[in-house]
Amino acid sequence: MALTGLMWYGFLVGHLAGNLTLLSGDSGAAFDEYAGFLESIPQFIIPTELILLLALALHVYCAVSLSREAAAARPIGYRQLRSVGGRSVASRSMIWSGLLILVFLGVHIFTFKYGDRIDGSLFRLVQETFGHAIWAGFYLIVMVALGLHLWHALRSAFQTLGLSARPTLRRLSIAFCTIIAGGFALIPATMFLGG
């Protein structure tokens, strides 16, 4: 779980760094150039995509089997079980935020990777899409879910990999996932408002 999740974490960092060129204010020149560069190195991109896909499959598989094991480990539940500790919105919604992200991933790839570019410009397609309130809103909601997912994911990964559960690392997790989710959310928000 932790390892496959961390691979996606790595991807997200790169993806965000690249996509922030959307906001460079040059009518998409930098972004389209960046997209073009990526498309020019399929020998690198395709294996990466395959690896990410495999990691995703494993991640989902682990999630499903963990949920099943958890259900099997407590076949009869409580009438009442209250949280008094570390359980958070993020940790208790991992499965839901995960499912939402999975759906989003399909939509996102379909829209932008396989969508019809406007005049050959991916930037224009993105601009067009985020001009619609529904699309921008959908993206913003998903980014909130992503942020929550990443928050529990990172601190949980630290713990699983035996690093630590110390408050510093917990705080670091919050900061990091805020930057990533916030960064991504900035794109549809800015483009809708600027739009």
């Binding site: 963990l66 958890a70 500790g85 570390g86 529990h152 949980s156 699983t160």
Partner: peptide, 8 residues
């Protein structure tokens, strides 16, 4: 079950 690091 397994630990999913909720710290309850």
């Amino acid at each position: 079950g397994h630990c999913t690091n909720e710290y309850e």
